[in-house]
Design a protein around this nucleic acid. Sequence first.
DNA 1: AAGCTGAACAACCGCTCCTAG
DNA 2: CCTAGGAGCGGTTGTTCAGCT
Length: 261
Amino acid sequence: MGRSPCCEKAHTNKGAWTKEEDQRLIAYIKANGEGCWRSLPKAAGLLRCGKSCRLRWINYLRPDLKRGNFTEEEDEFIIKLHELLGNKWSLIAGRLPGRTDNEIKNYWNTHIKRKLLARGVDPQTHRPLNAAADHHQQQQLQAPRRFAAAPAGHHHHHPDHFAVLSNSPEACSHSSDDEPSSATPPPPPRHLGIDLNLSISLAPYQPQDQTSEPMKQEEDDEASATANGAGNAAMTTTATTAAVCLCLNRLGLHGGEPRPE
DNA sequence: AAGCTGAACAACCGCTCCTAG
DNA sequence: CCTAGGAGCGGTTGTTCAGCT
């Protein structure tokens, strides 16, 4: 549906933020809280789009941000989470206290992808490169372009779809043959249908009923869970997830700690 | 020393989801 | 129930910086 632009572009600044703008934004949020982003710029005396303010705050100005290099543990944790969740950067970020989705996304694209490739692992499927390549070819043959043509907004936000992605780690690693949940370069349009089927058939993989909705549940409360690692319980479904849980526990400790750097 | 290239990161854009009216 | 507005997400682009030739 048509909609009005989020801001009056003609009257908004773009590009890098100045210190003064940062100060204004920080001061305003400290005084008034995050509230309504759309009206915030005006209220704060900023010539910025609300979206831009939100992004700036969340990715850069928030006081609880960690910043600095990622630790080896975080690397591995991100890889695991990506295997489970795909390009759900916000969900991944939700499990890494002090990290933002944008930061993780960038880090993934610049470091981890390469790291995995060096290991001979396909960053998209988390499978050995050869296997991934084979599967890719098969996919190309079986499902040529139709998924690529999927609506740009395939956005895995869809609950059902998400449940599939997040619930069964295996669903990811298996169905991953048709490409996991990831979706960076080749449009994630991932073969939804195929994915669904596979994940369903893999259901047995989830040992306990709790697992039927593990991540999904997290999805809801993860935001709060992240900070304290509460999301752990929900993730203890498989060996893989168990490993993740351990990581999370450890990472949780980093939360308030100054990073070594 | 200068130019080039690639990596890293900040920010923007377009889309979907959620929800209030 | 429908519509519109706001928020959030993921992909992409633009800019800066460091290393190399």
